[in-house]
Amino acid sequence: MVKDLITLDDLSKLDIRVGQIVSVDDIEKSDKMVKLSVDFGDFHRTILVGMKKEREDPKEIEGMQALFVVNLAPRKMFGEISEGMLFDIGYEDGITPVLAVPEKEVPNGVRAG
């Protein structure tokens, strides 16, 4: 089912950017979450992602570029602050998520849309 219609103004509120995943670190207090350190060119962010049960080795995504929503309000979880959201494909449809990635390398921080 397709979600409710939105306007272009609604869409323009999302700041989706390409970031390079510098490191993936375990969050010992969680059975789901890992901590990503992400390079967006002009800035770096810590983003928590629930992928421990989705991948045998979450560190396999280190060094990869992916899409992230960078203008979400920071959220504290498991004693860490998450400063965005990984934009992945599949979770909402109940399949093992995969990264949304650019078809070729682009500068970190480039906006999607």
Rank of each mutant, 00 (worst) to 15 (best):
D39G: 01
P58G: 15
R55C: 07
R75D: 07
V106N: 03
I81E: 15
L67I: 13
F43L: 12
D39Q: 03
L36Q: 02
P107M: 04
K76P: 00
G63Y: 02
K59D: 02
G41A: 07
V22D: 13
K13R: 15
H44A: 13
F68L: 06
R75E: 11
A100M: 14
E83C: 04
E80L: 11
K53S: 11
R75L: 09
G63D: 13
L72V: 08
E62V: 08
D93V: 08
K76F: 03
E28Y: 07
K104D: 05
D93P: 00
I27D: 14
E56M: 03
R75A: 13
S12V: 07
E54A: 15
V34S: 00
L11K: 02
D93Y: 04
L99Q: 03
F78R: 06
R45G: 00
F43C: 13
S30K: 10
P97R: 13
V18S: 03
K104N: 10
V98T: 12
V22I: 15
G50H: 12
G90Y: 03
P97T: 12
E60T: 05
R55F: 12
L86K: 00
D10W: 07
F43Q: 14
D42K: 14
G63E: 04
M77I: 14
A73M: 10
D25R: 10
M33W: 11
